[in-house]
């Protein structure tokens, strides 16, 4: 396992906005076709770290960074790798479902269309497989022209996953995807994530420790902008190496 080359990797990454430093020298790795969970209390920088991999931070005012962020060994800020191309490769699902005010179909084929796919049959094919992989196909296959805003919260979030999958990314970044969902929708979402992990590399930010334990193969714990501990989930929860980790997972703070 550990012999695999990491798909995502940061090396001594410092990130900040203006005068505040949010990430303070983080080196972390995500291995191929596995779910890696980033956990930590609110404000520890886990979402910022996640957004480094598809450079979403670049749009925020005052953003700066030092250190390396690598995708399959290649620097994501490499001028030869256009921002848009990077994002075709690295999909992202946000904390709150953000379907576009378009039909379900248009939501899903949004990415492929951006990438220049025009063939109707290819688009239909992509639509179906993406929705199937996101476990949404059965629920919406008869109403693909309906507005995406009419779906329930859980459905919307899975639609967002389908939308991300439609661009056939190698990596999927999930930013607390279940935080706004009820337990049943959360279970369904987690099931989807586990299935997806067989094909894509997933980086999951969550502050739900049980979720990390249920879904992730590896877990990394961030605290105040620093990486406290990183390891296989089982050992991480059963035998934390750091005192801070132990205190966090036993619920003494956070």
């Amino acid at each position: 396992m550990s012999g695999d080359l990491p798909v995502l990797e940061t090396r001594r990454l410092h990130v900040g906005f203006g005068s505040t430093e949010v990430l303070k020298g983080i080196s972390v790795r995500a291995l191929p076709r596995r779910v890696t969970a980033l956990i930590g209390p609110s404000g520890c920088g886990k979402s910022t770290l996640l957004r480094c991999f598809n450079r979403m931070n670049d749009h925020l005012q005052g953003f700066w960074r030092r250190g390396e962020v690598l995708l399959e060994g290649r620097e994501v800020h490499d001028p030869g790798l256009p921002l848009e191309a990077l994002r075709f490769q690295v999909g992202m699902v946000f904390q709150k479902a953000n379907p576009f005010p378009l039909s379900i179909r248009e939501n899903v084929v949004f990415g492929p269309k951006l990438a220049g796919v025009t063939s109707a049959s290819t688009l239909e094919q992509t639509l179906q497989t993406s929705l199937q992989r996101a476990n949404l196909w059965e629920e919406v296959k008869d109403s693909l022209g309906r507005s995406a805003l009419q779906l329930s919260g859980g459905q919307q979030q899975r639609l967002c996953i389908a939308r991300a999958l439609a661009s056939s990314p190698d990596v999927l970044l999930l930013d607390e995807p279940a935080s706004a969902l009820d337990p049943i929708a959360t279970a369904k979402l987690e099931e989807t994530v586990l299935e997806l992990a067989e094909q894509v590399t997933i980086l999951l930010v969550t502050h739900n420790l049980q979720q990390a334990a249920r879904v992730a193969g590896r877990t990394a714990f961030l605290y105040l902008g620093q990486l406290v501990e990183e390891g296989e989930t089982e050992s991480f929860f059963s035998a934390p190496r750091e005192k801070l980790t132990e205190e966090y997972i036993t619920g003494r703070f956070g």
Partner: peptide
């Protein structure tokens, strides 16, 4: 791999 054609991408960026 993504179906991305570099030419297409160049055009959208332009």
């Amino acid at each position: 791999m993504s179906p991305l054609g570099p030419a297409h991408l160049r055009r959208s960026r332009l």
